[in-house]
Write a protein that binds this DNA or RNA. Structure first.
Lengths: 209, 209
DNA sequence: GGGGGATTGTCAAGAATTTAACAAGCATTC
DNA sequence: GAATGCTTGTTAAATTCTTGACAATCCCCC
């Protein structure tokens, strides 16, 4: 797909939200929606929705609005849900397990192909239908299977060294849940840090306002 | 604390990040840091750090920089880590369990006082040192204990109805992990939605750029 | 205790983002 | 099939956010 590289981060952050609301609308068997109505649901402005969508092309029609199924598919394709990125997970503790149960990787263009841990109690367990491997096998696995995405669910201490190793092994994208802010500003390396604790602090801040 | 209500959301989002980096610096036994050096670590600009901090007061000193411990404490206090918000969790499946193990509620000004679920297999289990209660007891518990924060780790279908009930029972803040976008724009109600899947989609988007 | 160097707080400029406005164009109805 | 009303794409204005610049001032060393 011809994808414009200079879409702002703010827009990109909102795309998954549109995608999710459209999914709900499909479930409700709604066929079409205007930017105004969608804005009402999402508690945003119609202007912003139209502006955002127009970064990628005119998906709507005057006097009609947007066809929900079509728009859902368009946004999905922009986000890459039709891809099949080979994905591995490092760390299969509580958090790793929770993520596999909470997130549908397939629906998001990812295929979880292996899970690694260094804890003998965890190695050998079956998580999300996959047998957890010893982290010692990471290198040989990557050389053969060349995964694209690594989900990091390991302790702070190990996050950076594992990420570095994975980069050497050709992994280019990281979904990082460790309490370590992975800010690798190398070419071609993409990172999404998820700092759950930050979000709780934001909440406690807002409470005391 | 006198807290200015018109601090922008962008600044607030960054505060927990500062807090976390300062924590690391304390662990490294560093005593002081300049905005320039902190910016280098965090991959941001010195200007932004100074501007952000100055929303709350001048915590630095010319020619010296910022005292790390003092600044850490200041930001902590701004974020409310010295509070003791009574917190309950609804849903003790994989995700709920993972959050209790991943997040230190106490260090963030929250005290987890009860956990509820509706699954007989889960009720009675001990999670984070707390026995999981039947959701049927939620109402009576809230009437007596008046919790401030509810952590929602339940399925999409139930999220809204449970949140509504909790609001009636006096809960004013929600940390929502369900796949439901809780956008309650009522007075005094604060919500932090955590949509993990969004973050993965953002990653897959960036990969294909 | 004075001078040089460093670093802040702050102000202003510059970017980016959001909101508002409106002409163009399609759907729908009669 | 023409008229009315709705809704888009798009442009411009307004607002917000970020970056750059610099005087004020404090530390640190001699």
């Amino acid at each position: 797909m011809a994808k414009n590289n200079d879409i702002s981060a703010s827009v990109i952050k909102r795309l998954p939200r549109y995608y999710s609301y459209l999914e709900d609308l499909i479930e409700e068997n709604v066929e079409r929606i205007s930017s105004k109505d969608l804005a009402g649901r999402m508690k945003t402005t119609a202007s912003q929705i139209r502006q955002d969508l127009n970064c990628f092309g005119g998906f709507g029609q005057q006097g009609y609005g947007y066809n929900i199924k079509a728009l859902h598919e368009e946004i999905g394709s922009i986000l890459g849900v039709d891809k099949e990125y080979k994905t591995i997970m490092i760390g299969a503790g509580n958090l790793g397990k929770a993520i596999t149960s909470q997130i549908s990787f397939e629906k998001k263009g990812c295929r979880l192909t292996a899970i690694f841990d260094n804890d003998p109690k965890i190695i050998g367990q079956t998580v999300a239908g996959i047998e957890v491997s010893d982290i010692k096998n990471l290198e040989s696995f990557c050389k053969v299977n060349t995964p694209s995405i690594a989900v990091l669910c390991l302790p702070k201490e190990n996050a950076f060294s594992v990420a570095k190793k994975l980069i050497e092994l050709g992994v280019k994208s990281f979904w990082n849940f460790s309490h370590f802010d992975l800010n690798l500003h190398f070419d071609n390396i993409v990172v999404e840090n998820v700092h759950l604790g930050d979000s709780l602090l934001t909440l406690t801040y807002k409470i005391s306002c």
